[in-house]
């Protein structure tokens, strides 16, 4: 897990959840952070803009998409896979 990526994502999530970054821990879920559906969509947009990636996420079937949002740490790992590209993800 790259610390810079994790720090940036935690900062994005903290902003959406109106919390301090220090209050956001990797094992926390978005529900625990109080993030609603619009907050989630804004978080994904901020991640896309920050890292220059395209996040595969459909609000109608969050469980079916390849982008795991089950916890802060899961989001960090999913973004890392997106940054490293599809070929690396396939090997992993």
């Amino acid at each position: 897990m790259r610390p810079d990526v994790q720090d940036q994502i935690i900062s994005i999530i903290a902003r959406e959840a109106v919390l301090e970054p220090a209050e956001v821990r990797p094992e926390m879920t978005l529900e625990e952070l109080g993030l609603d559906s619009l907050g989630l969509v804004e978080m994904i947009f901020a991640i896309e803009e920050t890292f220059g990636v395209s996040v595969p996420f459909n609000a109608n079937e969050p469980a079916q998409t390849d982008f795991d949002i089950s916890s802060v740490g899961a989001i960090v790992r999913a973004v890392e896979r997106l940054i490293s590209g599809p070929s690396a993800a396939a090997v992993a």
Binding site: V41, I44, F57, N58, A59, N60, E61
Partner: peptide, 20 residues
Amino acid sequence: EGLRVMSPEGCHPFSLGRTG
């Protein structure tokens, strides 16, 4: 697109597995 509620493949109202 930004709202992420649109289906890329089709409209399936009230159906299990609907995608938007």
